[in-house]
């Protein structure tokens, strides 16, 4: 079928054929039939147009809806996923890990002395710093299922499915190394006068009877440990 209205067109062909066979009892009948057929043709043409316009409008709506969906998941500044998307993805990965009985790991990353950075260089440069740090973390997070999101102001989170503590620590080390390599000047930081990050690493084997938040809380505690042990380092919990 090359046309969704092929049946309607068949009907028109049959009607035309009928008019050609002179099978009407009178010329008047034939002429009435012709008038009705012409009306039908006009209405069919209208219907085709309506469907065409509706298809076009629906496609537009679909594109807009996809765009909005994307925007609602993305952090505008860094282009990373936002907190909302992370929360949704986290629940899915947690449930999936409960079923598959594979470990799940989280790295919480926080830029050291970021408030001081903003105070010293202004918020616009603060934004540039956030973008630069986001970009290098992206490089350290390599597997397709790994998820990097902006968790809050200067805080990022990495979700690593099917990953134990050891694997997560390796990613954390990469992040630490790459951020140090950025060499962004931070005059107000006591740490070598450059921008650094602290990281909290946690992993667990998700179980039905465990609270989902536990893993996030643990990575937070690990981050706190890293902060209180001098920053520019990672800690495990």
């Amino acid at each position: 079928m090359d046309n969704i209205f092929s049946r309607e067109e068949q009907i028109i062909s049959r009607a035309e054929a009928l008019l050609g066979t002179n099978s009407f009892q009178s010329a008047k009948d034939a002429s009435n039939y012709r008038v009705l057929l012409d009306e039908y043709k006009i209405l069919l043409r209208q219907m085709m147009k309506i469907v065409k316009m509706a298809d076009k409008t629906q496609l537009d709506l679909k594109i807009v809806s996809e765009k909005l969906n994307r925007l609602s998941h993305i952090d505008v500044l860094t282009g990373l996923y936002n907190r909302r998307y992370f929360n949704e993805a986290y629940v899915k990965e947690w449930n999936s890990a409960v079923r598959s009985q594979k470990e799940l790991a989280i790295i919480m990353i926080d830029i050291d002395y970021f408030k001081k950075y903003n105070d010293t260089y202004g918020h616009l440069q603060g934004d540039e710093c956030l973008k630069a740090v986001a970009d290098v973390i992206k490089k350290a997070v390599k597997r397709p299922r790994d998820l990097l999101a902006r968790f809050g102001g200067e805080e990022f989170v990495v979700l690593l499915p099917e990953t134990g503590l050891e694997g997560a620590v390796s990613v954390a080390q990469d992040v630490l190394f790459l951020v140090n390599g950025l060499d962004i000047e931070h005059a107000a930081s006591p740490l070598q006068k450059k921008v650094t990050v602290s990281l909290g690493v946690a992993a667990t084997l998700p179980q039905n009877n465990l609270a989902k938040e536990e893993l996030i809380n643990n990575s937070d505690k690990a981050l706190y440990l890293a902060k209180s042990s001098g920053r520019n380092c990672y800690k495990e919990y």
Binding site: R45, Q46, K49, M53, K56, T57, D60
Partner: peptide
């Protein structure tokens, strides 16, 4: 574009 094309559809007949 859609609004323009719809206008053209109406006009055609």
């Amino acid at each position: 574009e859609t609004a323009i094309e719809c206008g053209e559809e109406f006009e055609e007949d």
